[in-house]
């Protein structure tokens, strides 16, 4: 049941990421809800379903940007594995810790993107200023999104027959 709920949440997050968030940009950087989702999924689900879901969701995202096929699937997969391994040793009580985790994951995401683009010969066009503002924006919005997703995850529906 938890897997189903997390899949549905992931799909909703993906639609939001593709349809709504590109319109809420700051310095050309859109909030990264997928990051918040993978963080939540890796904490809530067992390892294998998390990896599978991260891969499938990342691949779905890649298909909307076919030239970078496989990039987001790889990033989400690696982040899911990383979170799955490390989240138990990371204190989640303090919002600052959560924000730091989101920031580090965002940095990892951006570095992975740059490496992929460099290897694919697409070139990296973002300036240092854009990158910094983008990372800060993604950290704030990602943390906020994570708490919202946690809240949504707590909602239970009971059907009485």
């Amino acid at each position: 049941m938890q897997i189903l709920r997390m899949s549905a949440l992931g799909l909703a997050v993906l639609y939001l990421q593709l349809l709504v968030l590109p319109h809420i940009t700051l310095w050309h950087a859109a909030p990264n809800l997928l990051l918040a989702w993978v963080l939540l999924a890796a904490m809530k689900l067992p390892r294998t379903p998390t990896l599978l879901l991260a891969f499938l969701l990342g691949l779905a995202y890649d298909l909307t940007l076919p030239l970078s096929l496989g990039m987001h699937a790889t990033i989400l997969l690696l982040l899911a594995e990383l979170i799955n391994r490390l989240h138990n040793s990371w204190s989640k009580n303090s919002p600052f810790n959560v924000m730091l985790a989101v920031f580090l994951l965002s940095v990892g995401w951006e570095i992975a993107k740059m490496v992929f683009h460099a290897l694919a010969g697409h070139g990296v066009t973002a300036t240092a200023q854009q990158l910094t503002i983008g990372l800060l924006w993604q950290t704030v919005s990602g943390t906020l999104a994570l708490y919202i997703l946690l809240l949504l995850d707590r909602i239970r529906f009971h059907v009485q027959l």
């Binding site: 298909l63 076919p66 096929l69 496989g70 990039m71 790889t74 992929f116």
Partner: peptide, 27 residues
């Protein structure tokens, strides 16, 4: 599982733009 998925990612990423586009079309 992780290895298989990473391998799949690698297969998807390999090749030029045309090759990635063809794979994306298929999916």
């Amino acid at each position: 599982v992780l290895s298989l998925l990473l391998l799949l990612c690698l297969v998807l990423m390999l090749g030029g733009d045309e090759s990635r586009l063809a794979k994306a079309r298929l999916l």
